[in-house]
């Protein structure tokens, strides 16, 4: 049975698509069969971050409407053959998706993939609900900032009440906290909520901390998910996330300000 993982947040612009791309590719690099689904109907950005935007012919809504088969719509990643992408449509009606037709697509995909990673749209309305409804696990992507943390808590409420697992009284969705755009320096200066602060407030297990990193913009410019930039801090932090998702215990990195020499600490700079 495929593990259905939704990357969700409530708030927009926190790093869901960046994280979906990195995690999808990372799992595939480990030899798993992965399909990445863009649930952000109307906006469609995952294809761009994955670097396959020019290969989009059919999309999720085409499949839902029976205008294309899944195989026609799925784009095989050029770097890792075990990874496919199901793009969102750019202009179509957001209401095309419903529980029934999405359920059918996921069931079909579940037959041939180990992981189904769902990139959620922002918000706490229908679109976000569709993306999380069938999830087994949720990666709650959060920035260390008040409105993002509050929205993440609202999403936790939805996971616990509006998901399929909640409605059927099954074992609850497994929740993971992914803290992104973290700046240890600003935390040290008391300007940014710390990992511990956010953990205290949301009280769900920590899956990873991704530092604020210039590598992310470079990666999106190139259409190469940042996990491929193996020398970068963000790339390494996403690697650790993959290990943890696969059950390994990995120490958290990039939580502290990089140490300066004792002299510069005493005399400024």
């Amino acid at each position: 049975m495929a593990r259905i993982i939704v990357v969700t947040s409530g708030k927009g612009g926190v790093g869901k698509t960046t994280s979906s791309a990195a995690i999808g590719l990372g799992l595939a690099l480990k030899g798993h069969k992965v399909v990445l689904i863009d649930f952000d109907i109307g906006l469609r950005n995952l294809d761009l971050i994955m670097g396959c935007e020019r290969r989009v012919v059919y999309d999720f809504v085409n499949v839902i409407n029976g205008e294309a088969t899944l195989n026609q719509a799925l784009i095989k990643d050029k770097r890792v053959s075990s990874l496919s992408i199901l793009p969102a449509s750019q202009t179509r009606d957001k209401d095309a998706l419903n529980k029934e037709n999405v359920g059918k697509v996921l069931e079909e995909l579940g037959k041939s993939y180990d992981f189904i990673v769902c990139d959620s749209p922002a918000g706490i309305e229908a679109g976000a609900m569709m993306a999380l409804y069938y999830a087994d696990e949720a990666i709650v992507t959060t920035n260390p900032e008040v409105s993002s943390v509050r929205d993440s808590d609202r999403i936790l409420g939805m996971l616990a009440s509006r998901s399929r697992r909640a409605e059927l009284g099954l074992e609850p969705i497994k929740e993971h906290l992914l803290l992104t755009r973290y700046s240890p320096k600003r935390v040290a200066e008391g300007e940014m909520l710390s990992v511990e602060d956010v953990k205290d407030i949301l009280s769900i297990p920590l899956l990873g901390v991704i530092p604020e990193s210039q590598a992310v913009l470079k990666a999106s410019n190139a259409g190469e998910p940042v996990i491929l930039d193996t020398m970068s801090d963000a790339g390494k932090a996403y690697q650790d996330v993959i290990e943890r998702l696969l059950g390994e215990t990995v120490e958290f990195r990039f939580l502290q300000v990089e140490k300066k020499g004792i002299l510069s600490r005493l005399f400024g700079g």
Binding site: E145, V146, V149, R150, D153, V187, E189, G190, E191, M192, L193, S194, D197, D200, I201, L202, R265, L266, F267, G268, G269
Partner: peptide, 30 residues
């Protein structure tokens, strides 16, 4: 002076904007 700043800043820790943010969040989330 950096050394002085360092100690002064330590003292101010309790009233950082981050700790205010945490307090407000705890209330609204609850």
């Amino acid at each position: 002076m950096a050394l002085l700043d360092y100690f002064l800043r330590k003292k101010e820790k309790q009233v950082t904007t981050a700790s205010k943010a945490k307090e407000r969040l705890q209330i609204i989330v609850a």
